[in-house]
């Protein structure tokens, strides 16, 4: 018999601190599998955010840097410009990327920095206890929107993937989900494509990963993945929003 599924080499053999059913672990594994498949473990530098995934440097068996809140794209820019032969990616939540770090990701994209952003959208601030995020859905109840988000008061949720394509520096923009096996397979393909776009030097790439946070959604892990499917995907449709010119990849 042959092993058909086992822990990727680029993921250290330590337990994750994430809550039961948290989708961060699935996203970590997919990135590590892609690093293994592209054979870039010794050549990849990751930048961790502030948020539940602040400890990712304890998990990926690659060089990692931990940035201040929201600043990962700026740090990644510096690393990539000094070490252009490395594959440089950030791993950021929606509080980190789409709230305090909005200026960072937009300008990194506009500059066409040749880096990859993995953007984990769980529609809430996880680490700090479930406050409303810019990505929180209309009507979604959080600690700071106990009656549900209202657009009159809180504005509308930010659609990051829809925002980026007009910026000429962006080469690859995709939204995926990791709540069921079929989506997980698609998610891995998109992450791999984003890394390949960077390796080919084609410009900025971002993969938004819709991800369940059962704890702060107040749902069981099984209810949470169903909630994601029924509520997040209709507002945040999956797919590729920008790809490099046909035939390049």
């Amino acid at each position: 018999m042959r092993k058909v599924f086992s822990r990727p080499v680029s993921l250290k053999d330590v337990p994750f601190h994430y809550c039961p059913g948290c989708n961060h672990g699935i996203a970590h594994r997919l990135i590590a599998e892609v690093i293994d498949e592209l054979n870039i473990q010794d050549n990849t530098i990751g930048v961790a955010p502030v948020g539940c995934s602040v400890f990712t440097m304890d998990y990926f068996d690659i060089d990692m840097f931990q940035a201040s809140h929201g600043r990962a794209p700026a740090v990644a820019t510096g690393i990539k410009r000094v070490l252009p032969d490395r594959v440089v990616f950030t791993y950021q939540g929606d509080g980190d990327l789409a709230a305090i770090g909005t200026g960072e990701f937009v300008h990194a994209a506009a500059r066409g920095e040749n880096i990859t952003l993995i953007f984990i959208n769980n529609a809430v601030y996880g680490m700090t206890g479930g406050q409303m995020a810019p990505t929180t859905l209309i009507g979604q109840k959080t600690k700071t929107s106990p009656q549900g988000r209202k657009h009159e008061v809180n504005g509308y949720p930010i659609k990051v993937c829809e925002m980026l394509p007009p910026l000429e520096g962006t080469a690859y923009v995709a939204r995926v989900a990791v709540h069921k096996p079929k989506s997980i397979i698609q998610a891995k393909k998109a992450i791999k494509k984003a890394f390949e776009v960077q390796i080919k030097g084609l410009g900025f790439s971002l993969v938004e990963v819709l991800s369940a946070c059962p704890t702060n959604w107040g749902l069981s892990p099984i209810e949470a993945v169903t909630w994601l499917e029924e509520n997040m995907i209709p507002y945040y449709p999956l797919g590729e929003f920008k790809t490099p010119t046909a035939g390049v990849i």
Partner: peptide, 10 residues
């Protein structure tokens, strides 16, 4: 594939 904690080997 869906296990967030890499508990399962196949």
């Amino acid at each position: 594939m869906i296990c967030p904690d890499l508990v399962i080997e196949v």
